[in-house]
Amino acid sequence: MAAGARALPGVSLTWAIDDPRMRRLILRLFVAGLAVFIGIPLLTLVLWSFAGEWFWPNVIPTQWTIRWYEQVFENPRVVNAMVLSFTIAPVVTVLTALIAIPAGYAFARLNVPFRRVLLLLFLIPNAFPRIGLYVSLAVLYYQINLIDTYWGVVFLHMIGTLVYMTWITTATFRSIDPHLEEAARDAGASPLRAFWSVVFPLALPGIIVASLFSFLASLDEAQGTLIVGTPHFITMPVLMYTLISSFERPVAAVFSVLLSLPSLVLLVAAQRYLRSEYVAAGLGRV
């Protein structure tokens, strides 16, 4: 597309973006600035996690140590929290997928009655402030004995994930040509089979993106878990809140690094799906 793009002298505002060299320079500066903005705050945390002693005005720690890492790994609470977080997140993701994919399909393909009202209802979890919702929910949990239970935490996490999953799968299903499914039906396949063997494989990238978001949202949830999960269900971010507020900064930094690692592994694994058309399929027409 760069071919033929030539700047007219005097068009002061746009000459820069029409000159390929200038454009490249601007792009590189922009990317560099962004990399600094995104990356360096995380790197300071890594520095802190190895800081034996780091007082103002030193730019880097004056003593290095791995004792904070030892402390974290020796602490059974940390290990427990990690195990808990990683047993909750997949369950939340699977359960959400089970109820959200049918709904997404229905919104995309079928004539759901009161569609407009329903779509609005599906937005309420996002429109009502979460804290207010969680506190109200905690009251309900006391009444139905879900407070401080595993399933109580799982159901709470699903509040956030359900909306995303429904929304993304709706868009995904809508991007698939309905004639494909009809052709399968005409060839004698049952509705379920037609869905499973024709629609589902095509929708998989979108579903994977949605599942990824759900998984991450579950790993990230701290507010609600703190309210309904204590004292027995302390997840990683809940523990992180504790560490921040009790001035164990290097420990908190270590924990941040450890908490980010699985997510970053996931990021690398999901790169394929997060780029190009997959994302479009997943998030495009919302």
Partner: peptide
């Protein structure tokens, strides 16, 4: 006092 996100507090009692 230290941990503001701790919310259950009175609300539970009040609303129940």
């Amino acid at each position: 006092r230290r941990a503001v996100p701790v919310v259950v507090a009175l609300v539970v009692a009040a609303a129940c």
